[in-house]
Design a protein around this nucleic acid. Sequence first.
DNA 1: ATGGCAACTTCCAGTTGA
Length: 257
Amino acid sequence: MKIATYNVNGINSRLPVLLRWLEEAKPDVACLQELKTPQEKFPEEAILNAGYKAIWHGQKSWNGVAILTRNLEIQEVRRALPGDSEDLHSRYIEAIVNGITIGCLYLPNGNPAPGPKFDYKLQWFDRLIAHAGELYKSGAPVVLTGDYNVMPTDIDAYKPERWVKDALFLPETRAAFHKLIDQGWMDAVRTLHPNEVIYTFWDYFRDAYGRNAGIRIDHFLLSEPLKSKLKSCGVNRDVRGWEKTSDHAPVWIELNL
DNA sequence: ATGGCAACTTCCAGTTGA
C-alpha cells in the first residue's frame, strides 16, 4: 500500500501537476495540504475522473487539507484537532482507509517568531501532541503525515545556521517535534535513510531547487503496528522541476500489509 | 542584510507562505 503526502500550494492552480503526478505515481492514498480553496470549489470531478475518491476540508484563501484514495473505501473520522472549538483553520482531517487511521495535517508556519503566529503554532502543536498520544496509545495502526513545518535536525536543512531564528527551526519547534516522536512514533523517511540529505521543499526564490537549497519539512510518522511493515519510501523530487509546480515535492511510503 | 517567487483576493497592491 502506497501512501503519499503533497503540499500542493493551491489545488486549483496546481490541478494539471496534481493529475499528472497521480497518474504517474499512482499512490493508493494521497494526503494533500494547502488547498487554498473554499469547500465548494474543490475540483472533485477532475479528481474522480482520475480514479480517486476524496474527502476534504476547504477554507477560503488559505490552508485546506484532503485525503484521496484509489480503489479503497474512505471513512472520515474527524476534520479538526480536538481542544479548541474557536480554531477555524482547516489544518487537519483524519480517516480510516484499509484499516489504517490516516491523519493528514498542515501544521502552522509560525513566522514571524516571536509573535502571535508563533504562539499559535506552538498551541496547535500541543493539541497535535495530545491527540497523537491518544492515537498511539490506542494500539491502532496510524499514519500521521503532512506538512509539519519543522526541520527536525541540522541534516534536514541546507545551511541550517540560516534557519536558527526561523519558526520552522527554533528550539521550541524542534522540541515540540521531538516530544511528539518520543511518544514512540517512527519518522519513516529518516529511519530508512538515516544519513541521507533529503529535502521536500525548495523556495521559489534564487533557483533554490536548481541549487538543491532545500529543507525537509513533510514527514510520515508511523505507530507501533506499522513499523515492521515499512518497506520503502522516497520523495518524488522531479515533480518540483515541472512547469507551474508547487514549492513542495510529494513524499511517499510503501507499506507491506 | 536584503529580496527574490507564487498564489491568494476582488479590482493590481497587500497579505501570506517558509
